[in-house]
């Protein structure tokens, strides 16, 4: 086999695959954050906690109701989305007229509560979640061995991201959404129920986080703290991308996952910080982010 800069190809492709997997989660989460931010103008700090909640819903469904992975893929986003809708109706709604920072503080508090409750209930250590039978095994691609489950995660998240992009950018519903992002008052004047749209958008955004949580459950263990470190990286991804466009957040998510994977191959010490370094460089070069609009 050939070697690239002294790196065996198995290691390189292996890390690139991990990078793509992480990138899938970054993309799903930053997409949710972007959609929520577009309409609600808040940065959803409890996104990581709701991602964790999605993984736990899958775990609990299996433990207590015998509902497997495929059911969980639907149940978790619905349950967490419903929880999000309750949050929006009862709390977030009161903050729209205030400074946006209050939304961040409120959702930070909610994240503390949700993570605290789960930690209280399940301890801080991880709980295993097995890969469904139909997705076990791996296939040999010649240059690397690709586990089926990982291929599935990348494919599904790519599909969900692109479907979301299509709905928002190419359908009538998406047009209402984009219009309400630009000028909610005017859209409401045209007879569109903007408050309901806001509620559903929030539910959809956190549903994406829950879906990412279910996808992550078999790869990482299900743990109450799984979301809190991830969310900071996703914030960096969101700032690098610029929250200006849907496609931008998807591309940035996958791209940064890959860069992180490459860093693990060539300079492992920096793999935890590379995204933050990129964040600093991007801010110096293009403060509005790669896909952001100048304010």
């Amino acid at each position: 086999m050939f070697e690239l800069l002294g790196i065996p190809p198995q290691a390189l492709f292996g890390q690139l695959l991990i990078g793509l997997i992480n990138g899938s989660f970054y993309a799903l989460l930053s997409l949710g954050l972007t959609v929520i931010f577009g309409l609600l103008n808040i940065i959803n700090f409890c996104h990581g906690a709701l991602y964790m909640m999605g993984a736990f819903v899958a775990w609990l469904a299996l433990q207590h109701f015998g509902l497997g992975y495929w059911a969980a893929l639907f149940i978790a986003p619905v349950v967490v989305g419903a929880f999000g809708i309750v949050l929006e109706r009862t709390m977030l709604r009161r903050l729209y007229k205030l400074d946006h920072l209050y939304g961040l503080l409120l959702t930070f508090g909610i994240a503390l509560i949700v993570e605290g409750v789960f930690r209280n209930e399940f301890g801080a250590s991880g709980l295993p979640y097995v890969i469904p039978d139909s997705l076990t095994g791996a296939r040999n691609l010649g240059f690397m061995v690709l586990p089926n489950y990982r291929a599935w995660v990348i494919a599904l998240s790519l599909f969900v991201c692109l479907a979301t992009w299509y709905v928002i950018e190419r359908t009538k519903l998406g047009a209402y959404l984009r219009a309400a992002t630009e000028n909610p008052t005017l859209v409401q004047a045209f007879g569109i129920n903007v408050p309901r749209m806001i509620t559903l958008t929030y539910g959809f955004g956190v549903g994406l986080a829950a879906l990412a949580g279910v996808l992550a459950a078999p790869i990482y263990q299900v743990s109450p703290l799984m979301g809190s470190n991830l969310i900071i990286v996703v914030f960096a991804v969101v700032v690098i991308g610029g929250m200006g466009s849907i496609m931008g957040s998807i591309v940035t998510g996958f791209l940064l996952g890959l860069i992180e994977g490459l860093t693990k191959v060539f300079y492992p010490e920096a793999s935890a910080t590379v995204i933050f370094v990129i964040l600093a460089l991007v801010l110096l070069w293009r403060p509005q982010g790669l896909f952001g609009r100048r304010s």
């Binding site: 709390m91 205030l98 209050y102 503390l112 993570e115 605290g116 209280n120």
Partner: peptide
């Protein structure tokens, strides 16, 4: 109180933002 302390801090956050700015 252990992890209840985190929950209590979260509740203080929420109450402060909603009712006690």
């Amino acid at each position: 109180l252990g992890s209840w302390l985190t929950i209590a801090q979260g509740v203080i956050f929420v109450v402060c933002v909603l009712a006690f700015r």
